[in-house]
Write a protein that binds this DNA or RNA. Structure first.
Lengths: 149, 149
DNA sequence: GAGTAATAAGACCTTCTTGGTCATATTATA
DNA sequence: TATAATATGACCAAGAAGGTCTTATTACTC
């Protein structure tokens, strides 16, 4: 699996906050419940996202978490990067210069191309888009549920 | 890192065989030496590639390994698949149906898109291309070495 | 047939990462 | 001061990754 669980959880949590709180504050416990993420584990993930400047955490009564930036300025790539990737195809791209055959390696450019496409796809996808899409999907589901009554 | 060492080693070994042996037989020990792969470990990798039908292994004196198919019919994707991937972005794509929110998940399609692009890039790259490129790079290097004399 | 050069196969081992829990501290509000 | 929330760090179990070692097996050559 390319994504770790932490990364997938992190993405889900961020989308949840963006969708439900809509700029306001969400409560970790409720995010965990909605997204089926072990609660204590989620707090770890939130800490990382907060330290990286993607979330703001507020302690105390009526505390919680909120996006630290507008949803349109947060991309999947950023979230996954914060959660420890991996966003490198191979060691030679992670630590350029360490591989002695870098210059005359016939696959090097293929790894690079694959990696860049991946980063592009993830970098073009913002939380705002995902939250919007989430709402669409949700309303669609509600509609079809109503229709089937 | 997306690629495991085994996968990267496997790719390097296959390119080596395709480039050096050119349809003939190569010797594991020499492949290991040229590619800086721990020899005993390489035999493991070769076993997997052989079981998967990408390599033929011949025992006994004058034995060795050769491509089991024309280099033009072997892709990076196949090699990496054999070596244990990973070629799935997320669990939901690895085991479709297991994620309860699959239908109304806003990121699902993004993971799918990223994965398909990756597979396409790797699936379009054949060993024949890589071997050709390897020879080009090698001759270029030799030329520049000669020029600098 | 003996010797030898090669791969096959499987047990094993060490280290690191992942996913996760637990206990305790800190902070802010009412 | 009680309480509702996050912060932090220690801890742990399981699995995978990377690699070694030993012992077959096979096939060629003399």
């Amino acid at each position: 699996m390319i994504l770790s669980r932490s990364a997938a959880y992190g993405v889900r949590a961020m989308i949840d906050v963006a969708t439900v709180a809509d700029g306001g504050i969400a409560i970790t416990r409720e995010v965990a419940k909605r997204q089926d993420i072990p609660q204590v584990f989620l707090t770890k993930i939130i800490q990382r996202l907060a330290q990286a400047g993607l979330l703001e955490a507020h302690r105390g009564a009526h505390g919680g978490i909120r996006l630290a930036r507008p949803a349109g300025e947060i991309t999947l790539r950023q979230i996954i990067e914060v959660m420890g990737g991996p966003l490198f195809m191979n060691y030679c791209l992670f630590r350029p210069g360490e591989c002695p055959r870098e210059k005359d390696c016939p696959v090097h450019d293929v790894w690079l191309e694959a990696q860049e496409k991946l980063l592009e796809t993830l970098g073009n996808c913002t939380l705002a888009y995902l939250a919007e899409r989430s709402k669409e999907l949700c309303s669609k589901q509600t509609n079809s549920a109503n229709q089937s009554k």
